Amino acid sequence: MPQRDLFDLRVAVVGASGALGSRIAHQLADQGARLLLVGRDEQRVRDAGPDAPVVVADLVDAGAGDLVAEAAREHLGGLDGVVNAAGVAAFGALVDTPDEVIEEVFATNVIGPAFLLRRLLPLLQESQGFVVNLSAVLAERPMAGMGAYSASKAALTALDRALASELRRAKVRVLDVRPPHTETGLVDRAIHGQAPRLPDGLEPDAVAARVVLAVAEDASDLGSDGFDG
């Protein structure tokens, strides 16, 4: 299997204040990667992440990618990879889910990542770098009571698979990650509704470690069956 040396790798971590984003950032930094941390709240990013430059940006803003690209050139001299660990959850039957909630779920989980990557792909093509998007097991197995959320993750996975084909000649690796339910606290921060009964989740540290290993292995897919637990 191909290997990617993580030392001195220039990586933007989006959603760097979250349970998975912050852990992925720390583990990349521990292996010598040079990071750019991206989030909506500068203080939360600095408190959660390793010592690295911070870009304050909202993923749903089409201009967020421009800010990240500019900061990557300024602080890192380019970009070798981007890890998108940002996302929101919403629960409940579709008929009971307000329009604005559906819109926000797709804006954050699908449209925002597409906006971001449109602006970062030129840098990644220069470096023959990589993209990591954190989707979810729901892209494989949608659940009742999680229709909009499941659909948004399935759409993100579809985007990743299309991008993998588009970018093959440019030698940019696209890694779609679909972890099982993980104890990140996301269900307690849902923007709507209450989560259905879920099994005990995986530990965020273990999930983050598996993602970083997949990056080092230069993997192109990490489905739910690729995680222990």
Rank of each mutant, 00 (worst) to 15 (best):
A86H: 00
G77S: 08
L76Y: 08
P98V: 11
A90T: 06
E70G: 07
V88R: 05
L94T: 12
G92D: 04
H75F: 12
V83H: 00
N84W: 04
E70Q: 14
R73T: 14
G81I: 01
H75W: 13
A72P: 08
A85Y: 02
E74W: 10
A72C: 12
A85H: 01
T97W: 10
F91V: 12
V95Q: 12
D96R: 10
L67P: 02
V88Q: 01
H75Q: 15
G92M: 08
V68C: 09
V82L: 07
A69V: 07
E70H: 12
T97P: 12
V88E: 02
G77C: 09
D80R: 08
V88D: 03
V88H: 09
D66F: 00
A85M: 02
A93L: 15
N84A: 12
F91A: 11
D96L: 08
A69I: 00
A89K: 03
G92Y: 01
V95G: 02
G87H: 07
V95H: 09
V68G: 10
F91N: 13
E74H: 15
D96K: 11
L79D: 04
G92A: 05
L94C: 02
V88A: 12
D96M: 04
L79H: 03
L94R: 05
A85S: 11
V95F: 04
G78I: 05
G77W: 06
A93D: 14
T97L: 15
L94M: 11
A71T: 13
G92P: 07
G87W: 02
A89R: 02
G77M: 07
V82S: 11
V88G: 03
L79F: 05
A90M: 04
L79W: 05
G78Q: 05
D99T: 14
E74D: 15
G87L: 00
G87C: 04
D66I: 08
A69H: 06
